[in-house]
C-alpha cells in the first residue's frame, strides 16, 4: 500500500533526485561526465587484463567487440544492483535527522535510494545503447526483453536493500558484512567471465545464484542479439518477489522503532 503512498510525494521525490544530481556534480570540472568515466574506466581495465593477461575465452567471440560488450552488459547492470543495495544500506543511518522528524514520510528514503541509482544507471546505459547503435550491434526486437530483466534486477535489489538497510539500524555489522558479500557475489556471478569456464562442480553451485540467469539473459540480448531463456528467469523472478516481500515486511514492522534506535 505504501507504494501507492509514494505517488503523493512525487514532487518531493523529483526535487530530491534533482538536488542530489546537482549537488554531486556542482563545482566539478567535468560534471556529469564522471558518472560515465568511472564505470567505463573499470570496463577498459577489465577488458585489457582479462583478455590480454588472463586470457578469458568467450564462446561467442565472433568479433573483437564481443568481450567488451559482454563486460558492459554485466558490469553496468551489476552496477545498478550494487548501487541500490549500497545506498539502501545506509539510507536510515545517514539520514537520522530526517527519520526523527515526525512528519517525514520514511518510505521516501528507500524510494530515493532506488530512484537515484536508476538515474545513474539510465545515463550510462543509454550511452552504451548509443554505442551499440553506432557499431551496428544493436540487438533489435529482443532489446524489449531488457525491461523485464532490469525490472527483476531492480526489484531484487530493492527488496534486499530495504531489508538490509532496516537491519543495519539495529546491527551495524550488517553494513560491513553486506559490502563483503557484494564483492563475493560480483565475482561469483558470470559477469567478467562466461559461465562455461567454471569447473563443473562450481558451475552447479553457480546455477543456484539467482543473478546467474539474469546476467546470462542480459548477455543473450546484448551480446548474442537473442531473446533470453524465459523459463530460466522464473527462479530469479520468484526470489526477487520474495525479497521484496521480506523487505516490505521488515520495513513495515520496524519503521516505528527505527527513529528510537537512531
Amino acid at each position: 500500500m505504501f507504494v501507492l503512498n509514494l505517488w503523493r510525494y512525487r514532487d518531493f521525490l523529483r526535487g530530491a533526485v534533482q538536488r542530489e544530481l546537482q549537488a554531486r556534480y556542482r563545482g566539478s570540472l567535468l560534471g556529469m561526465a564522471w558518472a560515465l568515466l568511472n564505470p567505463l574506466a573499470m570496463i577498459a581495465v577489465y577488458a585489457v587484463i582479462f583478455s590480454q593477461v588472463v586470457s578469458v575465452k568467450l564462446p561467442r567471440s565472433d568479433s573483437s567487440f564481443a568481450y567488451s560488450i559482454h563486460l558492459c552488459a554485466g558490469v553496468l547492470t551489476w552496477g545498478l544492483f550494487a548501487q541500490i543495495i549500497d545506498r539502501s544500506l545506509v539510507m536510515f543511518v545517514h539520514n537520522a535527522h530526517l527519520v526523527k522528524k515526525i512528519n517525514f514520510p520514511r518510505v521516501c528514503l528507500p524510494a530515493l535510494a532506488v530512484l537515484n541509482s536508476i538515474v545513474d544507471f539510465a545515463i550510462i546505459f543509454s550511452v552504451f545503447i548509443v554505442f551499440l547503435l553506432l557499431i551496428g550491434r544493436f540487438p533489435g526486437l529482443p532489446s524489449l526483453a531488457l525491461a523485464p530483466l532490469i525490472g527483476i534486477l531492480a526489484l531484487f535489489a530493492t527488496g534486499l536493500g530495504v531489508a538490509l538497510g532496516t537491519a543495519n539500524v539495529f546491527f551495524r555489522d550488517v553494513e560491513q558484512m553486506a559490502r563483503v558479500i557484494l564483492q563475493f557475489w560480483f565475482w561469483l556471478t558470470p559477469i567478467i567471465y562466461p559461465l562455461s569456464i567454471l569447473p563443473e562442480s562450481i558451475g552447479r553451485v553457480a546455477a543456484w545464484n539467482p543473478l546467474t540467469p539474469v546476467m546470462i539473459g542480459f548477455q543473450d540480448v546484448l551480446v548474442g542479439g537473442q531473446w533470453p531463456d524465459w523459463a530460466s528467469l522464473a527462479y530469479p523472478g520468484v526470489i526477487a518477489l520474495a525479497c521484496a516481500a521480506l523487505g516490505a515486511g521488515l520495513f513495515r514492522r520496524h519503521a516505528a522503532d527505527i527513529a528510537d534506535e537512531l
Binding site: F50, V56, Q176, Q183, F184, W187, Y193, I197, I202
Partner: peptide
C-alpha cells in the same frame, strides 16, 4: 575477518576460475 573474506574471493576467482 574482512581481509580474510576478500582473500577467499580473490583466491577462488583467480586461482580456480581463471
Amino acid at each position: 575477518a574482512v581481509p580474510l573474506m576478500m582473500l577467499t574471493v580473490y583466491s577462488f576467482v583467480f586461482g580456480v576460475v581463471f
